[in-house]
Amino acid sequence: MSAPTHRTAAALAGRRVWLCDLDGTLVDSAPAHEAAFRTALAEISPGLLGSFEYGAHAGASTRQVVRELGVDPALAERVVGRKQRLYRAYVRDGAVAVLPGARRLLTLLTGRGHAAYLVTSASRESAAGVLRACALSGYFRGVLTADDVPYGKPDPRFYRRACQAWAVDPASAVVLEDSAHGVASAVGAGLLTLQVHGGAPADGAVPVRDLEEIVSLLESETPGTGVDPVG
């Protein structure tokens, strides 16, 4: 085990609460989100379509993205509603897939009696649709969405609210995120934060290649966990 990997494994030791992001972390939803945004903008606010880059807004809620784009306030709710309806239709059609290692990681956590919670910038209806379509609902003890909090990632209050909601001691928890927005929220709340599937590591995050690497780190703590590699 390399020195950085050993340090990461040591940091995880004894942490029994996992606060997990959804989009880009556990499921591959970026193409569906981007397509929904582009169609909604093209239909309602086409002048903004040329400057839209989904990657710059990853981790933000739909309403945050619409505000950041400068959509006319008179049109904002129409864009939000249309984008969400389109995205939910894509989800129902199977356009969002579970990322490699996600089910294996969640199975390992629950099998060891760890608590997994979902902390997502998605709306409650969209998050529920993804969990249902991807058969991930049963892994989480609680779900916090953009509908439940009046501020979003990267605001640290998003993750602070999650800790308050579930009486989580930050010293016993680890956050799993992919985006700079999500990392900033979690790190700002004083939480150990693993960043997966990212490019350049965001400030304060512990970079991890992918979910399979996290599974390997956890399995190395206790040989022979007996977890099926369901991927």
Rank of each mutant, 00 (worst) to 15 (best):
D23N: 12
C20M: 09
A32S: 15
A56G: 13
P46G: 08
R38K: 13
V27R: 00
H57K: 02
A40F: 00
G59K: 05
F37K: 00
G24N: 06
G59H: 07
R16D: 15
P46T: 06
A56F: 10
A40H: 01
Q64F: 12
G59Q: 08
A36C: 11
A32Q: 00
A35G: 08
L19F: 07
L19M: 14
G24Y: 01
W18F: 12
R38C: 05
P31W: 01
V27T: 09
E43N: 10
G47A: 11
S61K: 03
A56C: 12
A32N: 03
T39W: 12
A40E: 03
L49N: 04
H33P: 10
H57R: 02
S29Q: 03
R16H: 14
A36W: 00
G59S: 14
Q64W: 09
H33R: 06
Q64G: 13
E34D: 14
G24V: 02
Y54E: 08
G47V: 10
T39N: 11
A36I: 04
S29E: 03
S51Y: 08
G59Y: 11
T39R: 15
T39F: 12
V27E: 00
T62R: 01
S51M: 13
P46E: 06
L41M: 08
D23V: 06
A36T: 07
L48P: 00
H33S: 08
F37L: 07
W18K: 02
T25L: 04
L49A: 09
L41K: 01
Y54K: 08
L41C: 02
D28P: 07
A32W: 00
A58H: 10
E43F: 07
G50E: 12
F37M: 03
R38V: 04
D21H: 07
A30C: 08
Q64E: 15
A36S: 15
E53V: 15
S45E: 14
Q64D: 15
R15V: 13
H57F: 12
T62K: 00
R15F: 10
